[in-house]
Nucleic acid binder design. Structure first.
Lengths: 155, 155
DNA sequence: ATTGGGAATGAAAACCATTACCATTAGGAG
DNA sequence: CTCCTAATGGTAATGGTTTTCATTCCCAAT
């Protein structure tokens, strides 16, 4: 289960080692599934996907691993209002391809978008800096989501 | 259970009527608790608070009413990562005192902040406009949250 | 290679916030 | 005041996520 392009060891190997965590089959499988999917999956979806290739996998391991990955910063966890969490690869060391979500409150559909003006990014950074100083709060991450009605649900 | 200042009928009465919903004791109690608390409460906290004054209240009603209020736009629903939802009064017709949250991933503490609102508002509006046009998505609401470590948890 | 021991796993049971069900109660228009 | 229907509340069910615990496996030290 190679990295993004099939060449070289996946970029996450180093991170695992340096954190003192073991690199196991299930963990690689889960990362691989997330890597290939490249969109938000639920724990169960990941479970089923891994199961196709590694039938011995247990749901428990899925949850445990995902929690670990989130805590390591390799994976983001989202809540779109239906009541299952969604998980998404944080896109590597260089790929700071942060993207955001439009959530339809009608049908639950989620649209990813990356068109976020550069000014906005700048502002976000400044805000972050300001808040860090004022509240002595070390910000590691942020969440931005828009809610509304998609094309179909407006009618 | 009077309005914000004890004079005049609470500002939400009109909204209820115009939506065709009945104005009942439990609903007023719940709004009253949210109004007095003025910070994010869980369903159970609201339940216990209402119970002190109106012991016949049922948890089911709490949930049902909160859902209604959220859907009416009178109340916002948040998820801070512990696994219960939090509810907060949307601050009336004039009080556009929008605020955002800093969530500590260490201890779960939540800090409200109102700084940088005006700058953010402008960009938010532009972003919103762009997204609406591009995806034909009618945005009704948004969520911004910062995650990190609070003062205590950094040590 | 082998091994020892702590980390990781998986099956099943427990958890627990939220919902569904349904018989009963009460708002408010006429 | 009455009636109709929305609203309520107790209880049981739901279902995603966690906990428990015996077993297995990674891997550093032999």
């Amino acid at each position: 289960m190679p990295g993004r392009n099939g060449k070289g060891p996946p970029w996450w190997h180093g991170k695992f080692r340096s954190c003192g965590y073991r690199l196991t089959i299930p963990r690689e499988m889960i990362l691989d599934v997330l890597n290939k999917a490249a969109k938000h999956l639920s724990a169960e979806e990941i479970y089923l996907a891994v199961q196709k290739v590694y039938s011995a996998i247990g749901l428990t391991t899925i949850y445990r691993t995902l929690e670990l990955l989130v805590q390591m910063g390799l994976v983001f966890k989202f809540d779109f209002g239906d009541k299952r969490s969604r998980y998404e690869l944080a896109d590597g060391p260089k790929g700071i391809r942060h993207h955001y979500h439009l959530v339809c409150t009608g049908c639950g559909r989620v649209i990813d978008y990356t068109d976020f003006i550069d000014e906005a990014k700048e502002l976000l950074l400044q805000t972050q800096k300001g808040l860090t100083k004022k509240y002595n709060f070390k910000i590691t991450n942020h969440l931005i989501q828009f809610y509304g009605l998609c094309e179909k649900c407006q009618k």
